[in-house]
């Protein structure tokens, strides 16, 4: 077993031991969505219009919340040092870490989203679009976010900083994903948006692990 697979296994095991780490962002996701009808208007017609956008904004914030811890513990406990000492590809490691993050945040968010769709009176036609956009879009959030997490891993109170760095980069994902859900709700096609999300995912898989790997090395020379 190589270090990469061992790390993926170990991180999944850690997530199983500390379920709070991935459950808390999920509850946050639920609560943020619940605020919108309270704050704005519970009228189902209105909610149906904003459902896709609200669910996506909440998913994005929940992802950011869980990203902070992605590399912090690894920097603090010497795991990072062992990675660098092993001489194994940091690109693969960064990709593996992003995968674990997605399994613990994006995937449960996607699974939970239909419930929120009910609460937000999401039009029936939009459910597949929402699931599909989350399934393709949330890995991009994990990948891009892992760059920010690697950059801020050594910074005290890096969580807020991480959000500042990464939120502007999430804008394209948000635009296309929310628009896919919205258009599906109107009964229009949304292939273009999903296609664009797919292209961004391919780009993110290719490029972001390099940036994350380069950023990880910075945390060593303290």
């Amino acid at each position: 077993m190589s270090l990469v697979t061992a790390t993926i296994r170990r991180d999944l095991l850690l997530a199983a031991r500390n379920p709070g780490e991935w459950l808390n962002p999920l509850m946050f996701f639920l609560m943020v969505v619940a605020l919108f009808p309270l704050a704005v208007d519970p009228d189902p017609k209105f909610l149906a219009r904003i459902a896709g956008g609200v669910i996506w904004v909440a998913a994005l914030l929940a992802t950011l919340l869980s990203l902070d811890a992605l590399y912090k513990a690894d920097v603090d406990d010497g795991t990072l040092e062992q990675w660098l000492a092993s001489g194994e590809s940091l690109y693969l490691l960064a990709l593996g870490k992003a995968l674990v993050h997605w399994l613990c945040s994006g995937l449960p968010l996607t699974i939970m989203a239909p419930v929120l769709g009910l609460m937000m009176a999401l039009p029936n036609d939009a459910y597949w679009a929402m699931l599909l956009s989350l399934l393709i879009g949330t890995p991009i959030l994990s990948l891009l976010g892992s760059v920010g997490a690697a950059l801020t891993a050594g910074v005290r109170s890096g969580g807020l900083l991480l959000s500042l760095l990464i939120l502007p980069m999430y804008v394209p994902v948000l635009i296309f994903a929310a628009s896919a859900v919205y258009h599906a709700g109107l009964g229009m096609t949304y292939n273009g948006q999903i296609g664009f999300l797919g292209a961004m995912l391919a780009l993110a898989v290719c490029l972001t692990p390099f940036a994350a790997a380069a950023a990880l090395k910075l945390n060593l020379s303290r």
Binding site: L144, V147, L151, T152, G154, V155, G158, L161, L165, P168, M169, T208, A211, A214, A215, L218, N219, S221, R222
Partner: peptide, 19 residues
Amino acid sequence: AIESEEASHKAGAILSLVG
């Protein structure tokens, strides 16, 4: 935010390239 001069330059560079 990054205290080490070297690391803060590099981090800024990486972030601006990603940007």
